[in-house]
Computed example of a mutant assay.
Amino acid sequence: MEAGNETGVLEFLLLGFSEEPELQPLLFGLFLSMYLTTVFGNLLIILATISDSLLHTPMYFFLSNLSFIDICFTSTTIPKMLRNIQTQSKAITYTGCVIQMYFFLLFAVLDIFILTAMAYDRFVAICHPLHYTVIMNPRLCGLMILLSWVMSALNSLLENLLLLRLSFCAQVEIPHFFCEFNKVLQLACSDTFPNDMVKYFVVVLMGGGPFAGILYSYSKIVSSIRKISSVQGKYKAFSTCASHLSVVSLFFCTSIGVYLSSAVTHSSRSSGVASVMYTVVTPMLNPFIYSLRNKDIKRALKGFFGMRCVKGQWY
């Protein structure tokens, strides 16, 4: 590895969670099981929505896209970490680190945009039910997905191009289990002011903007639900957005908590552990949240596995 003051580096070192050898098999088994659960669970959601024609609606169209993005999101970090644990190596090449940061930022922002699109879908379904099929037409849904991909890709490209202009010092150890953007910026020897300004602008525009939109959508949804006279009607309306609200709360609360905790405390290990919540745990829990309380998903999964209902029993 060639490293020195104001020179380029060939690789970084990912310190991970622990350097103790006896903990490595435990970490490997834990994250492997979480990764496989994430991939398998989200893949089932995708297969269920594709195979069942009754789920060819905007709500499940966005859900299948969210599941695909969650698979890609975890795949940018966990496989590399598992490989490093298995080979007892902490190294990641400079190119590999840049590529990992590009796709991590891409899928993180995509997650936010898809969750926002799902909130708008629930807003239209509950607040404007008579115009739902007209407003949420296939063209609009496809356009929302396309714009999400384009804006996320351009943002990730911009931030990584600004990163490539930086030079790094001899200290190339990243106190994280993946190339976390802020941690890499802290290792730079050159001026990071443009990077910081773009980073804060992106957080406000692509983080705060969608979050404000989600809050506005649910304020209107709650207002519309309160106007429903029957208790059964209120429960049915709320149940259609309960799963999405749970996922939004889990994703935003954990991600915001990570960045707030990193601003308060300088403990890199605690920041790494907290990052697991929104990078690994949230994508893993999404299929359970959407399937446990969703009769349509359960029915689609049973139909996908060739099950038939006979006299109230599934065979």
Rank of each mutant, 00 (worst) to 15 (best):
D121S: 12
L158Q: 12
G41H: 05
V98Y: 07
M144V: 15
Q100V: 06
G41S: 06
L146I: 13
I71M: 07
S67P: 03
D111M: 13
N155C: 14
M101N: 13
T76E: 08
A119P: 02
I135G: 07
A91Q: 12
L130A: 12
L157G: 10
D70S: 12
F62S: 03
L63N: 00
T133L: 13
L143R: 15
F107L: 08
D121W: 05
S75A: 10
L163G: 00
V150D: 00
T77G: 04
S156P: 00
L66P: 00
H56K: 14
I45H: 10
L162A: 11
M144A: 15
K80Q: 05
I145T: 13
L158E: 12
I45W: 03
S89Y: 13
D121F: 04
Y132C: 03
T76C: 13
L36I: 14
C97H: 00
A48T: 09
Y94F: 15
F103N: 02
I85C: 02
S89W: 09
L110S: 05
F104N: 03
N155Y: 09
F61S: 09
L157T: 03
F61E: 04
F123C: 05
M59R: 09
L161S: 14
L106P: 01
I71F: 00
S53T: 12
T87P: 02
S156W: 01
W149Q: 11
F40S: 13
L110H: 04
I69A: 01
I112S: 07
A48Q: 04
H131A: 14
E159Q: 15
G41T: 05
Q100N: 14
L163Q: 03
Q86M: 06
T74K: 01
L140C: 08
T76I: 05
K80L: 15
A91R: 10
S89T: 08
L164M: 10
Y60R: 01
I99N: 04
R83K: 12
T93D: 06
L130V: 02
T37I: 04
F73S: 00
N42G: 10
I99E: 12
M59T: 12
N137S: 09
T57G: 10
L143N: 06
I50S: 11
L43Q: 10
N42M: 04
M136G: 06
Y132W: 01
C141D: 08
A153R: 05
A125P: 02
L110N: 08
C72N: 06
A117H: 11
G41C: 07
T93R: 01
H128Y: 14
A91C: 06
F73N: 00
I145W: 12
L47N: 03
L106D: 01
F113H: 11
L140A: 06
I78G: 00
E159P: 01
F73E: 00
F61D: 11
M136H: 03
L110V: 02
C141Q: 13
R139W: 08
N42D: 07
Y94K: 14
L140I: 09
I135D: 05
M151Q: 08
L54N: 12
F68T: 02
T95E: 14
A119S: 15
L66F: 14
I114F: 09
L147Q: 05
T87F: 08
S75Y: 04
Y60W: 02
T93L: 11
P138V: 13
I112H: 01
D52L: 01
I71W: 00
K90L: 14
P138L: 14
M136L: 09
I135L: 10
